[in-house]
Lab assay of single mutants.
Amino acid sequence: MATGGRRGAAAAPLLVAVAALLLGAAGHLYPGEVCPGMDIRNNLTRLHELENCSVIEGHLQILLMFKTRPEDFRDLSFPKLIMITDYLLLFRVYGLESLKDLFPNLTVIRGSRLFFNYALVIFEMVHLKELGLYNLMNITRGSVRIEKNNELCYLATIDWSRILDSVEDNYIVLNKDDNEECGDICPGTAKGKTNCPATVINGQFVERCWTHSHCQKVCPTICKSHGCTAEGLCCHSECLGNCSQPDDPTKCVACRNFYLDGRCVETCPPPYYHFQDWRCVNFSFCQDLHHKCKNSRRQGCHQYVIHNNKCIPECPSGYTMNSSNLLCTPCLGPCPKVCHLLEGEKTIDSVTSAQELRGCTVINGSLIINIRGGNNLAAELEANLGLIEEISGYLKIRRSYALVSLSFFRKLRLIRGETLEIGNYSFYALDNQNLRQLWDWSKHNLTITQGKLFFHYNPKLCLSEIHKMEEVSGTKGRQERNDIALKTNGDQASCENELLKFSYIRTSFDKI
């Protein structure tokens, strides 16, 4: 039985969820670079991206490699990797027998973001014989899940209580170790020597080791999670996991709180800001991140802002960003909400898709409305799209047979046209069989910064309504002859009103 693990408890099935942008060198404390989270699957090609990484700022997932063999891993080693800020997950990587050479110096898994409450997941690794993470000293947050690894031993010899604050939620089941077939031998045991430290858990006094050649490092209890030197002297209180010299914040392997210019500090002093819960960055760093993602459509890219001495992905609820200094300031009234469309555009074809934009005031991208039916549609669209004030790209209304009016965009005031449909149009209306009105132009103002209007096959939309939009939106004169079809717009509506004058002759039985 794995020490510190839980057996036999019912657990939810383990679901495996399925960018080499360097964020800056980590400095003297770390020998390499800070790398983003990685999802490495199918083959070993991307694994080489770990070569210079000291910190993975995010998670590391290595999974679904069915053609790899043990010899493929023999020359692979990433000794610079010290810390993973989120979680480490391995799933069905064939041929991998140990992690001792792959990650010989991995010391800390912070667990800032977890995989279903777990910071370390080893699942269905069919050839893994031992973990071998002999320098792993601290899992700051989260638990361990090690399950269905039929060859995995050296679990009962690990004292997880020396690595985690609590072992109650560890789930370590259905491994070879369960069948008591392992016969784990710690260093020196074969020669009758006791080389590794022994600890007591559940009444068992057991030597602690990761492999037959690597003991588990056990520091004096007084050192807590700070770690200790090879001689057993406690590291500085700002260290986490390990250090090369005692009581020196510049000799830590990793930091308990924050890293700044080669030393570990309790908090980031001005003019620095907390970033990702582990390091200090200056304003320029946060500003660069903001600008890199301002026009990016890459998933996970955030326009970072500053709030409460932190550089964070977005302002919290009730705050909006001051564009001059990136500071989050309290909103006066309802907060603006910028919604970034991942692929640059979004099609609204149902109430469900409209709900995804609920509360958005600025759309960074283009909207395509293609709704053919739905219950209580006008009210639903207004509830979900009615706060949109600005669209950076274009607005396209296409084959939306259920629409009679666009009044559900009740606050839309600006279409920038930074991206144009077919390279020309910022407003595009095609084949809307029941569209009769755009907006009530006596109450609604709309500016279209650039781009043209396109109207074709809107049989109940009168040309007068379209011409009014040209005047109000500032697009009059931009359109070419064929942009607004004269014969297919309003051709099934009563669009022309003329005053009919009647004269009559009164007659009676005795007068003409």
Score class of each variant (00 low, 15 high):
His28Ser: 05
His28Ala: 09
His28Arg: 03
Leu29Asn: 12
Pro31Leu: 05
Glu33Ser: 11
Val34Thr: 07
Cys35Tyr: 00
Ile40Leu: 12
Asn42Trp: 14
Asn43Thr: 05
Leu44Pro: 06
Thr45Pro: 14
Thr45Glu: 02
His48Phe: 11
Glu49His: 03
Leu50Val: 10
Glu51Ile: 06
Cys53Tyr: 02
Cys53Thr: 00
Cys53Pro: 00
Ser54Asp: 03
His59Ile: 03
His59Gly: 09
Gln61Asn: 02
Gln61Lys: 07
Ile62Asp: 00
Met65Thr: 03
Phe66Ser: 05
Phe66Tyr: 10
Lys67His: 03
Thr68Asp: 15
Arg69Lys: 04
Pro70Ile: 04
Glu71His: 04
Phe73Thr: 14
Leu76Gln: 04
Ser77Ala: 05
Phe78Tyr: 12
Ile82Tyr: 13
Met83Val: 04
Met83Asn: 00
Ile84Phe: 00
Ile84Pro: 00
Thr85Pro: 00
Asp86Lys: 02
Tyr87Ser: 01
Leu88Thr: 00
Leu90Met: 13
Leu90Thr: 09
Leu90Lys: 00
Phe91Tyr: 14
Arg92Gln: 03
Tyr94Pro: 13
Tyr94Arg: 09
Leu96Arg: 00
Glu97Met: 15
Ser98Asp: 01
Leu99Ile: 08
Asp101Ser: 07
Leu102Ser: 01
Leu102Pro: 01
Pro104His: 01
Thr107Phe: 05
Val108Ser: 06
Ile109Trp: 00
Ser112Met: 12
Arg113Trp: 11
Leu114Asn: 15
Ala119Tyr: 00
Ala119Arg: 00
Ala119Glu: 00
Ile122Glu: 00
Phe123Leu: 08
Phe123Tyr: 06
His127Ser: 12
His127Asn: 04
Leu128Met: 06
Leu128Cys: 02
Leu128Gly: 01
Lys129Cys: 14
Glu130Trp: 12
Gly132Pro: 01
Asn135Leu: 02
Leu136Pro: 00
Met137Leu: 07
Asn138Ala: 12
Ile139Gln: 00
Thr140Val: 07
Ser143Ala: 14
Ser143Cys: 09
Val144Cys: 03
Ile146Arg: 00
Ile146Met: 06
Glu147Phe: 05
Lys148Ser: 15
Glu151Trp: 11
Leu152Cys: 15
Cys153Phe: 01
Cys153Glu: 01
Tyr154Leu: 03
Tyr154Ser: 08
Leu155Ile: 13
Ala156Gly: 10
Ile158Val: 08
Asp159Gly: 12
Trp160Cys: 01
Arg162Phe: 08
Leu164Asp: 11
Leu164Glu: 04
Leu164His: 08
Asp165His: 08
Ser166Gly: 01
Val167Ala: 12
Glu168Tyr: 11
Asn170Val: 09
Asn170Ser: 07
Tyr171Ile: 13
Val173Ser: 11
Leu174Phe: 11
Asn175Tyr: 04
Asp177Phe: 13
Asn179Phe: 09
Glu180Ala: 06
Glu180Tyr: 07
Cys182Thr: 03
Gly183Tyr: 10
Gly183Arg: 14
Ile185His: 07
Thr189Cys: 11
Thr189Gly: 14
Thr189Gln: 08
Lys191Ile: 09
Gly192Pro: 05
Lys193Ser: 14
Lys193Val: 04
Thr194Asn: 13
Asn195Pro: 08
Pro197Arg: 13
Ala198Glu: 15
Ala198Asn: 13
Asn202Glu: 05
Gly203Ser: 06
Gly203Cys: 04
Gln204Arg: 08
Val206Ala: 08
Cys209Met: 02
Thr211Ala: 12
His212Ser: 06
His212Lys: 15
Ser213Met: 15
Lys217Ser: 12
Pro220Phe: 01
Lys224Ser: 04
Lys224Glu: 12
His226Thr: 13
Gly227Tyr: 10
Thr229Lys: 11
Leu233Asn: 14
Leu233Pro: 07
Ser237Cys: 14
Ser237Leu: 06
Glu238Cys: 01
Cys239Pro: 00
Cys239Trp: 00
Asn242Lys: 08
Ser244Ile: 11
Asp247Glu: 04
Asp247Leu: 09
Pro249Gly: 08
Pro249Leu: 04
Thr250Ala: 08
Thr250Val: 07
Lys251Leu: 08
Cys252Thr: 04
Ala254Asp: 01
Cys255Ile: 00
Cys255Leu: 00
Arg256Val: 09
Phe258His: 07
Phe258Asn: 05
Phe258Trp: 08
Arg263Lys: 08
Arg263Ile: 08
Arg263Gln: 10
Cys264Thr: 00
Cys264Trp: 01
Thr267Ile: 01
Cys268Gln: 00
Tyr272Pro: 00
Trp278Lys: 00
Cys280Pro: 00
Cys280Phe: 01
Val281Leu: 06
Val281Pro: 00
Asn282Met: 07
Asn282Val: 03
Cys286Met: 02
Cys286Leu: 02
His290Phe: 05
Cys293Gln: 01
Cys293Ala: 07
Asn295Ser: 08
Arg298Asn: 08
Gln299Phe: 04
Gly300His: 13
Gly300Asp: 14
Gly300Pro: 13
Tyr304Ser: 03
Tyr304Pro: 09
Tyr304Glu: 04
Val305Ser: 06
Val305Ala: 09
Val305Asp: 03
His307Gly: 07
His307Pro: 01
Asn308Cys: 04
Asn308Asp: 09
Lys310Ile: 06
Cys311Lys: 02
Ile312Arg: 05
Pro313Trp: 15
Glu314Cys: 05
Glu314Lys: 07
Glu314Tyr: 08
Thr320Asp: 07
Ser323Ala: 08
Ser324Leu: 11
Asn325Ile: 01
Leu326Val: 10
Thr329Arg: 14
Gly333Trp: 15
Pro334Gly: 08
Cys335Asn: 03
Pro336Gly: 06
